[in-house]
Design a protein around this nucleic acid. Structure first.
Lengths: 232, 232
DNA sequence: CAAATACAATCTGTATACAGCTTGTATTTG
DNA sequence: CAAATACAAGCTGTATACAGATTGTATTTG
């Protein structure tokens, strides 16, 4: 999943230290989140060092960041393994995300700009474009990612934004794993429904409504999950 | 402040890797939080490497963790500097912490045990003991830290607990900096009041009430801060 | 044959030398 | 004298060799 979805950028000539770190970190984070590296995958420091044309040191720095984000577990003498999430933690995280979504509009809300409207319209257009491409879960995942990014832009409270992003990154890939179980129609129509709700709230310049829609949709996902687990 | 409050433990003989990391990380984190290293302090990798009898490598690992926690800023060619917090971020963080405190009792609440009651009683006893030791802000800070730790133990939702701790660590020292401005009587009586409120909620096995008390007290701190800033 | 044991392969953790960046200072230059 | 410049000191970033930990496997031993 997602193999062809992202092209890793080549390093520019004058790349500074932190830019290189960000490049490698974002690459690996996205590979994990988009399931190029599924849970259980053992990441090799030396192999990645060769691929990114650096030594082990910067790779290790990235690994420790990924561990802090909850995406890998580093074990001495064993290796660095992409984490899985137990259902209890998954549910707790979604419960919390649901609450944080409600806060989005209540803590220092931002003003909706024309740029924001352009962004949501573009995302909706992309979702409609793949509506009939049954089973295109890769692009659906990218759309979900961009939706989260847009909602981040609409979150005025900085710490809240950071934490919402962190929790999203932690559980997004688990969600992506479950997506196919729901079937394409349910998945894409749910995503489009959420996007249109969000857009209506944005059109009214009502961030509070946007947050409540998001919260409701997270609840809907939890319900779907519950049904899926009972049904399997 | 806090110089004599904490004794760094000696490394045991059979110390494993991650234990060493935790030891150094907690030492430096506490030194920053308890203002042994006030904002603006430049931390030296080589000096700390000498002190902890390791090479620069583990110290760098700790520095990157501290940077992720928001306690230091690492700048290439310059140094690693203990951060300060601007008032906007400080207020945003408190607004968020206030909301998270309310959630404590609502998301998977835990059962209060006799151990928990013993802990809160011990903290209250310590607070009463220093009640007449005017200006003993160091011990007051330690009491505030242990209060936070107890509330963490009462938070059943794991991600919520982690995030509440993170936000506390980020802003605690700023709060400690401001404490003396409020005067000893206000500071110690406020702390004791909060502790007794928390205890009453715990005695009723009502985590929701505990969270609401905590939220209210965070609001009270914000109000004090506002007055202090207007008055200065 | 089964169980304990020794070992080798492979991984992360650490130490250290060196490269690159930033900044204050001394020097040069108009 | 003032401003631009060259430089040196000190910091973090990187590369790499080596140490320590873990685990699967082959060997030994009863």
């Amino acid at each position: 999943m997602g193999k062809g979805a992202k092209v890793d950028t080549f390093p520019p000539e004058d790349e500074t230290g932190s830019a290189r770190f960000d490049r490698i970190y974002c690459s690996l984070r996205d590979r994990i989140c988009l399931l190029d590296y599924p849970p259980g995958t053992v990441l090799s420091e030396v192999a990645l060092a060769r691929e990114f044309e650096v030594s082990r040191t910067p790779i290790r720095r990235v690994f420790h960041r990924l561990e802090f984000m909850g995406l890998v577990q580093i074990r001495n003498g064993v290796g660095t393994i992409v984490t899985d999430i137990d259902l209890k933690t998954f549910k707790e995280t979604y419960d919390l995300r649901k609450r944080l979504a409600e806060m989005m509009g209540e803590l220092s809300p931002v003003e909706i700009t024309a740029t924001h409207m352009t962004q949501i319209d573009l995302i909706i257009a992309r979702a409609r474009e793949i509506e009939t491409h049954r089973g295109n879960y890769d692009d659906l995942a990218l759309i979900a990612n961009d939706t989260q990014r847009l909602l981040s832009d609409l979150t005025g409270n900085t710490p809240l934004r950071e934490i919402a992003e962190l929790l999203y990154i932690r559980v997004a890939r688990i969600w992506f794993t479950l997506l196919p179980q729901f079937g394409w129609d349910e998945a894409i129509s749910g995503q489009l429904h959420e996007l249109r709700e969000i857009r209506s709230g944005m059109a009214d310049n009502d961030i509070r409504a946007v947050g409540q829609y998001r919260s409701k949709d997270l609840q809907r996902m939890m319900n779907l999950l519950g049904r899926s687990l009972v049904g399997s």
